[in-house]
Design a protein around this nucleic acid. Structure first.
Lengths: 230, 230
DNA sequence: CGATGTGTTGATGTGCGTCAATAGAAGTGG
DNA sequence: CCACTTCTATTGACGCACATCAACACATCG
């Protein structure tokens, strides 16, 4: 386990912990390895552990009654997930599945809560962390109701690239249909939006590598309702 | 202020506080009175207080670049809002406005955070509270992407009435366009869905009072994709 | 080098928004 | 208490953004 110690304490949530607290946190932690597409837990499962991603990527998603899938979040190496749910009834509110082969650290919630109770700063940092996710979800709700598909895609590209230069690169690290689902559009629509932006000369696309050639005009296009009008 | 003491400590969030802690929480609290439609704070405003609703109702909402509004949450007397945001950058992520004349208690965040640091149980209860909102927002995202307008409206009616009887009443306490926005549909669509359900004999509508005559069939109608097909 | 899976592009359908007219409900003033 | 205004809610006609269905291009891999 100690080989993962350095990685885990880089997670923003744990950055303020003392070495002995990290030790305590990982006392009963286990390594977990997932094959691509493998399911880690299902919605409604008893939540007695949360996870840190050492390598690979994971998606959190919901299923409709008809079996359609909506990706709530895409998570990459270095991120944690499932910790917010510990405080609910103790059941996961989403499915979790690997997008690629992945290595995780599984941390029992009991140890986590114990530290949380003892360490006031930790609890506040945890509150800040959950608040950020809350904020993100509010943004998602706004985007899904007040923005067009084009605006959401453009916003995604803008959010994935640094804002300080007028051109930049976005590398999509997972399959495009997963990103599309995350954005609340069908894969076909996602593809069409990229094609439109390419034809407008705002971006260039080479597989999963997208180059933003004119960030300013891309922002302008998004704010003008993303192909809706004008 | 003491006349509000009883009311405030009924909020689930504060239920576990000792009287002296409540005292401390309300030490610098102020009463606030809002006229219907009045704005309490705007998105981006510095968040140095959160609120408890003594009487009246409040909506939290976002505005699009074009000025369209999406209601994120409808809050009634007895509820608190704005507390989740204290831990972020300290700026409100939404607008808040009164739906009716309202009386609030405004609690400075400083006092709140102080109690939170001292009282470990309080921090955990706060985490549970925020987690519930997180869960609710995940439900909203799922509903907005995987459900039809009809399904969302039916789900709303079902959620507003007790599940233990096959018939029940829902009283809409605010204007229907507010509920519609909360559900992510236009007021016209909301009205049409209610008309459809009425014509199917599943509900009866009298102004803002809706009577569910056949809960079982309403559930079935929702699960069959809410007028989408079949 | 065929097989399988992902992404792109085209043709068509439809759920719901938009625009518009009307009906009620509620509030206002004489 | 009743005209008049104002606002919310309902209903109809129409259009559009996006989904759906389908064919194809391309990549990856055994």
């Amino acid at each position: 386990m100690h080989e993962d110690l350095k990685a885990v304490q880089k997670a923003p949530l744990f950055s303020g912990l003392f070495p002995d607290e990290i030790e305590q946190l990982l006392a009963h932690a286990k390594r977990r390895f997932l094959k691509a597409q493998e399911t880690l837990f299902a919605e409604g499962d008893r939540a007695d552990a949360f996870y840190f991603i050492v390598t690979g990527s994971v998606r959190l998603y919901r299923l409709s009654a008809q079996g359609d899938e909506k990706v709530i979040e895409i998570l990459m190496a270095g991120q944690t997930f499932g910790e917010a749910v510990v405080f609910l009834g103790g059941h996961y509110p989403v499915y979790a599945g690997a997008l690629s082969d992945a290595a995780l650290v599984e941390i029992p919630t009991g140890d986590f809560v114990r530290i949380l109770k003892a360490n006031g700063g930790m609890a506040l940092r945890m509150l800040a962390s959950i608040s950020m996710r809350l904020h993100q979800l509010i943004n998602d709700v706004q985007a899904l109701t007040l923005e067009t598909a084009g605006q959401r895609v453009a916003g995604y590209l803008l959010g994935q690239s640094p804002a300080d230069a007028n051109s930049g690169d976005v590398h999509i690290q997972v399959h495009k249909n997963v990103v599309a689902s995350r954005l609340g559009v069908k894969a076909e629509t996602f593809s069409r939006v990229l094609a439109t932006l390419r034809d407008l000369g705002l971006i260039s696309v080479a597989g999963n590598d997208i180059h933003i050639t004119d960030r300013a005009r891309l922002i302008q296009w998004r704010d003008e309702a993303g192909s809706g009008r004008s």
